[in-house]
Design a binder for these strands. Structure first.
Length: 664
DNA sequence: AGGCGCACTTTTTTT
DNA sequence: AAGTGCGCCT
C-alpha cells in the first residue's frame, strides 16, 4: 500500500510540477483538508487551481465519476473538463463537470423513482410569461404587475430564501395595496405549473434541495456516490444552492473557489457575505488565498484596483501583476455609439492584420442589447464573432414555433404549445385558440384519442397539419427527423409570419437545430438539455470556426480573458446602471465593471460615447458615475480619434452617419 | 367580437 | 427583438 502511494505521489508531483503552480495554488490543489475555500482574486489562476485539484484527485486514486465540479456556465464546464483531460488524459473520464441546474436535472431525470418527476417538461422564460399571463388574466398594467415582474419577484423569493411577502415588498413596492392578490397569483401560478407538469428553472433546484433536506435516504445516497464536490464562483452561490450544499457537508469533501469582489448575481439572491461566513458554515475548512495576478499588466490592474478602492465596502483587494508593466489602458470617447462600435471593429481588424487572432479580442457589454451595434459592425466587416448572452437558439421565436408542434404531439395537454401553434394560423388569435384548446382538453378528458381530440377541437389546422401531428406523435423518438417534418409542414405559415422579420436569416437556423437534435431521446429531453445548457444563435452557423471575436455580457464573461479587451459604453447611466437605486445595487454594479476591466491581459480600451444626452445631463447619474474622478495618469484619454465631434450637445437622438450601412 | 397591421416604446444581468 | 396601444376590417 505504501509503495503504491509512493508511486502515485511521484506521478502526481510530475503532473502538477509541469503545470507550473505557485506555492499557494499547489497547497490548495493538494490539500488533505476535509473542506477548502480558495479566495482567489481576478486572474490569480482560479481555474488552473481547480483543474490541478481535479488532476491531483484522479491521479491519487479518486474515481473521477465520484467528483462533481459545478461551474456557472456550460462553456466553463467544458473548458474545465477539457483542461483536466489534457492534463491527465483518459483518467478523468466520467468526471461530472456541469452547472448546478444541469446537475440537478440529471439527477432528477435519471432517478424518477426517487424524485417522482417522470415526464415533466422544463419551460423557459417565455413559457413562464405565458403561463403567468393566464394567471394575470385581463387585468391592466397599472392595476396589477406585469407577468415578468411577478415572475422575477417570485423567483427572487425562492432563490434568496426570502418569504414571498418580503420579496413582493421589495420587488413590487408600488403595488403594496395588492399584496394579497399577488400572493394568490403566486399560488395559482404554481398550481397551473403542476397541473401541466411543467418545471421552471427554479423548480429544478428546489426539487433537489427539498429532496436532500426532507429525505435523508436521498442525501445519504448522494453522499455515498460523491467523494468530492468542487464549486466555482462560490460568491455567486445563492441560498437555494446553499441548501443543496448544506446537506452534503460532512458527507463529501467540499472545495470552493471564489472572489467577493466579483459577486455580480445579487439579483438572483447571491450574497457575497456568504463567502466570508463560509468557514463557519462549513466546519473543518482550510482557507487559501491567491493574490498574485498572472493575467494582466500592472497598468490594467491599477485601474481595477482604483475602482475597487473607491468603494465604501472593504474588499481588501490589491492585485499585483506578476507580469509587470505594460501599456496604459485607453479611455476613448466618441460622438455616438455608431462611431464607438465602428472604431472597435476597425481596431480589431487592424490588430488582426498585425498578426493577432480574432479570438484575442473580447468586447464586454453591460446588456444584451448593448452589443447590437458592435455586432452589426463586425457583420459588416465580415469579422467572425460569437455572442455570449445573445438570444438562445431554443428561445428564439421561429424555433419555438416549430418546437410547439413537437410538444403538442408529445403531450396533447401542453396548452402553451397549442397556443403558439394555433396562433400561426391565419385568422386565429388568442381567443379562437383558447376556445379550441378548451375543446381539445375536454375531448381528451372524455376519453378521446389525441388524434380525435385534435381534429375535433382544432379543425382549422387542416388535414395536412393534422396528419403531420399524428405522424410526429408516432415518431417521437426521432427528434431530428420530427423537426424536419414539422419545419416542412409549417414552412408557409412561418414564411408568412416572419416575412417582414428577417425570414432569410431565420430559415438558416433550422438545419443546425436538426443537427443539434440528432440522437436526442425525446423532445422533452432535447428542450431541457438545450435550455439549461444553451446554444446561442450567433454561434450556430460557425461551429467549426473557433477563431472568432467574442462579444459577451459581463455576466456571461465570467472566467474569460483575452489579450485585448474592450469595455463598451462605460458611460454615466450604464455604470452604475440607471435603475440601481440603492447602495447595495450600486456596489454590485461596481463589481460588474471590475469584472469587465480585469478580463484584459495586455490591452484594455474603455470606450464611451457622449451622445446619450439624457444621461450626461442628469446630475444624479453623472454624480454616481464610477469613473468621474478617474485620475489622469491611470488611463490615456483619446477623444474621438477618427472623427472629431460636431459641436455637442444634440437635442434629439444622435444622427446616424450615412456611410455606415450596418444598422440593418 | 375578434383578428390584424401599424406605429410606438423599451430593453439589466442568468439558469 | 418583442411587447403595447390603437384603429380598422371581417
Amino acid at each position: 500500500m505504501s509503495k503504491e502511494q509512493g508511486a502515485r505521489s511521484k506521478e502526481q508531483e510530475s503532473v502538477l510540477t509541469d503545470f507550473g503552480l505557485n506555492s499557494e495554488q499547489l497547497l490548495a490543489a493538494t490539500t488533505e483538508a476535509q473542506n477548502t475555500l480558495v479566495l482567489a482574486g481576478a486572474g490569480t489562476g482560479k481555474t488552473r487551481t481547480i483543474v490541478a485539484r481535479i488532476a491531483h484527485l484522479v491521479t491519487s486514486g479518486t474515481d473521477p465519476r465520484r467528483i462533481v465540479a459545478l461551474t456557472f456556465t456550460r462553456a466553463s464546464a467544458q473548458e474545465m473538463a477539457g483542461r483536466v483531460s489534457s492534463l491527465v488524459g483518459h483518467r478523468s473520464t466520467g468526471l461530472q463537470s456541469t452547472t448546478f441546474h444541469a446537475w440537478a436535472m440529471r439527477l432528477i431525470r435519471s432517478h424518477p423513482e426517487a424524485f417522482g418527476y417522470d415526464g415533466w417538461t422544463v419551460i423557459d422564460g417565455d413559457d413562464q410569461k405565458s403561463l403567468m399571463g393566464i394567471v394575470r388574466g385581463r387585468r391592466k398594467a397599472g392595476d396589477f404587475p406585469p407577468a415578468s415582474r411577478l415572475l422575477s419577484a417570485f423567483s427572487y423569493s425562492r432563490n434568496a430564501a426570502v418569504p414571498l411577502r418580503n420579496a413582493i415588498g421589495t420587488h413590487l413596492r408600488e403595488y403594496e395595496d395588492d399584496v394579497e392578490a399577488i400572493v394568490e397569483a403566486a399560488h395559482t401560478y404554481a398550481r397551473l405549473k403542476k397541473e401541466r407538469k411543467y418545471l421552471d428553472y427554479d423548480d429544478i433546484l428546489v426539487i433537489l434541495a427539498d429532496a436532500l433536506e426532507f429525505r435523508s435516504d436521498i442525501a445519504d445516497w448522494l453522499g455515498y456516490n460523491i467523494d468530492h464536490l468542487l464549486i466555482d464562483e462560490m460568491q455567486d452561490t445563492n441560498p437555494l444552492q446553499w441548501r443543496i450544499i448544506d446537506r452534503l457537508i460532512n458527507r463529501v469533501s467540499i472545495f470552493a473557489v471564489g472572489d467577493d469582489a466579483q459577486s455580480i448575481y445579487g439579483f438572483r439572491g447571491a450574497d457575497f457575505e456568504s463567502i466570508h461566513s463560509f468557514d463557519t458554515r462549513v466546519p473543518d475548512t482550510v482557507v487559501v488565498r491567491l493574490e498574485e495576478n498572472y493575467r494582466s499588466t500592472q497598468e490594467i490592474l491599477d485601474v481595477s484596483n482604483w475602482l475597487l478602492a473607491r468603494s465604501p465596502l472593504e474588499y481588501n483587494k490589491h492585485l499585483r501583476a506578476a507580469r509587470g508593466s505594460g501599456v496604459r489602458p485607453q479611455m476613448r470617447e466618441f460622438e455616438n455609439k455608431y462611431l464607438e462600435a465602428a472604431w472597435i471593429a476597425d481596431d480589431i481588424s487592424a490588430q488582426h492584420d498585425e498578426g493577432l487572432f480574432w479570438r484575442d479580442h473580447l468586447a464586454l457589454v453591460r446588456t444584451n442589447f448593448g452589443g447590437r451595434t458592435l455586432e452589426g459592425c463586425l457583420l459588416d466587416r465580415k469579422i467572425p464573432y460569437r455572442y455570449l448572452g445573445g438570444t438562445k437558439l431554443l428561445e428564439s421565436a421561429h424555433i419555438r414555433d416549430v418546437l410547439a408542434a413537437l410538444r403538442v404531439a408529445a403531450n396533447p395537454r401542453d396548452d402553451l404549445a397549442w397556443m403558439r401553434l394555433l396562433c400561426l394560423l391565419p385568422r386565429v388569435g388568442e381567443v379562437t385558440a383558447s376556445n379550441a384548446i378548451a375543446k381539445i382538453l375536454a375531448a381528451l378528458d372524455s376519453g378521446a384519442s389525441a388524434t380525435e381530440a385534435r381534429s375535433e377541437g382544432a379543425p382549422m389546422l387542416g388535414a395536412d397539419l393534422l396528419a403531420c401531428l399524428t405522424a410526429l406523435e408516432h415518431h417521437q423518438e426521432k427528434v431530428a427527423s420530427a423537426i424536419r417534418t414539422a419545419v416542412e409542414a409549417l414552412r408557409p405559415l412561418l414564411e408568412n409570419k416572419y416575412a417582414k422579420q428577417n425570414w432569410e436569416a431565420r430559415r438558416r437556423d433550422y438545419e443546425p437545430l436538426i443537427a443539434l437534435a440528432q440522437g436526442q431521446p425525446s423532445i422533452g429531453e432535447f428542450i431541457s438539455e438545450y435550455l439549461i445548457n444553451p446554444v446561442f444563435v450567433s454561434k450556430v452557423d460557425k461551429q467549426e470556426d473557433d477563431d472568432a471575436v467574442t462579444i459577451a455580457t459581463v455576466h456571461s464573461a465570467k472566467g474569460l480573458e483575452a489579450t485585448r479587451a474592450y469595455a463598451v459604453d462605460v458611460s454615466p447611466g450604464r455604470y452604475p446602471w440607471v435603475k440601481a437605486d440603492d447602495d447595495n445595487e450600486a456596489e454590485e454594479e461596481r463589481r460588474v465593471l471590475y469584472v469587465a476591466l480585469t478580463r484584459a491581459k495586455d490591452y484594455l480600451a474603455i470606450t464611451r460615447s457622449s451622445a446619450r444626452s439624457n444621461y450626461t445631463e442628469n446630475d444624479t447619474l453623472a454624480e454616481a458615475y464610477f469613473l468621474k474622478d478617474l485620475p489622469d495618469g491611470l488611463v490615456e484619454l483619446v477623444v474621438d480619434p477618427d472623427a472629431p465631434p460636431a459641436q455637442l450637445p444634440f437635442t434629439g437622438s444622435a444622427p446616424q452617419p450615412a456611410n455606415l450601412g450596418f444598422d440593418a
